Amino acid sequence: MAVSKRKKKDPVILVTNDDGVMAPGIRNLVEAVKDLGKVVVVAPDKPQSGMGHAITIGSPLRLHQVNLMDGVEAWSCNGTPVDCVKLAVDKILGGKPDICVSGINHGANHSINVIYSGTMSAAIEASIESIPSIGFSLLDYSMEADFTAARRYANIIVKKILSQKSDKHLCLNVNFPPVTDDLIKGIKVCRQAYAKYEEDFDERKDPGGKKYYWLTGAFVNFDKGKDTDVWALANNYVSVVPVQFDLTNYVLKTKLEKTFHK
């Protein structure tokens, strides 16, 4: 497969998502960053929401070039968002991009959602590979969502990261409130809130009388801090949470060292 041609001076921006290569959100993200460098899109060929950090094992992966937007090289992949990042680096770009941006996701990826999110898992995979990365999400699930404000702030954030030397493992989780640009108060760097879904499974029966289940539930915020992503979004700020793939609890590690070395 041919390696993409690019100018040496232009930063290479890998764009991916979990809603699929034809989702409105990814088109808006490309629009937001296309003036900042050479954009290459590698994204799933169908929605992959909730896939987390899944990778494809035991079945073939395929890439197909698609006509997403004029002047933008774009590929669809039958794998997961993480597969897309891996294949982009190894087969499409022939090396690491300067930054990987994922989204713009249709729906929230604040608080606990970062664990399940295919959008954020793609960004985290890039971070693991020493590629600075950002996941973008808009708190609006509609395919007709207004991305005007999200485009502007995505451009601001990516431009800022590209303009300075960043930690090679930098990974940001960015969420946009579902309001018009004039109502957004600015950008707030936050911590991840302790909030999650109180889940239930709606039990039903199919025409043959066999049981099946639909996952349901309500989102509950247990964290009343004013420094969280949930608070920021509820108060019309763009939330920016630095995340990492090292899941070690260092405070607990220190306590356990004392416990087991008595």
Rank of each mutant, 00 (worst) to 15 (best):
G37K: 04
I92R: 01
K224Q: 03
K205M: 12
I115P: 00
T259L: 15
G208L: 13
S163T: 05
N105E: 05
N155V: 03
M69D: 06
S102I: 03
G135V: 02
S163G: 14
A126T: 01
F136G: 00
K46T: 10
Y212K: 09
G209R: 05
E199H: 10
A149Q: 10
N113Q: 11
L139S: 02
V39G: 04
R151G: 01
K258Y: 11
L215V: 13
P97N: 10
E144D: 15
G118K: 02
I157F: 06
D200A: 14
H106L: 15
Q192A: 12
N78C: 08
V85Y: 01
A32C: 06
S4V: 14
V114I: 15
D246G: 06
K262Y: 09
S76I: 04
N236E: 08
I115Q: 08
V30H: 03
Y116S: 08
S117P: 04
D182R: 13
R204L: 10
A23V: 03
N17W: 01
I187A: 03
A43K: 00
V41D: 00
H53K: 14
H169E: 13
I128F: 09
V189L: 10
G135S: 06
H169Q: 12
S111C: 07
Y116R: 14
L61R: 12
K210V: 10
P177N: 13
D19R: 07
K86Q: 14
V230P: 00
D18T: 04
P44V: 05
P132I: 07
L29P: 03
I57T: 12
Y197K: 09
K46S: 12
N28I: 04
F260T: 08
G94E: 11
L233E: 05
G94V: 03
T216P: 00
G79M: 05
I112V: 15
M69I: 11
V189R: 11
R27Q: 08
I99R: 02
S102C: 11
L233Y: 02
H106A: 14
I104C: 05
P81M: 07
I156P: 00
G186R: 08
I26T: 09
V41N: 02
R6T: 11
A193L: 00
K5Y: 10
P44S: 15
N17Q: 07
N78P: 04
K34A: 05
I157C: 03
Y197S: 10
I104H: 02
D45V: 03
H110Y: 07
S102D: 01
L68W: 06
F219E: 01
P81F: 06
K210N: 15
S76Q: 06
G95Y: 07
G25M: 01
D200R: 12
G208F: 15
I128S: 06
Y116P: 01
W214A: 13
K7C: 10
D200P: 01
Y194W: 13
K188C: 04
I112E: 10
T216Q: 14
Y237V: 10
D10L: 12
I128V: 13
K168G: 07
A122R: 06
D146E: 07
T180P: 00
N235P: 05
A218T: 13
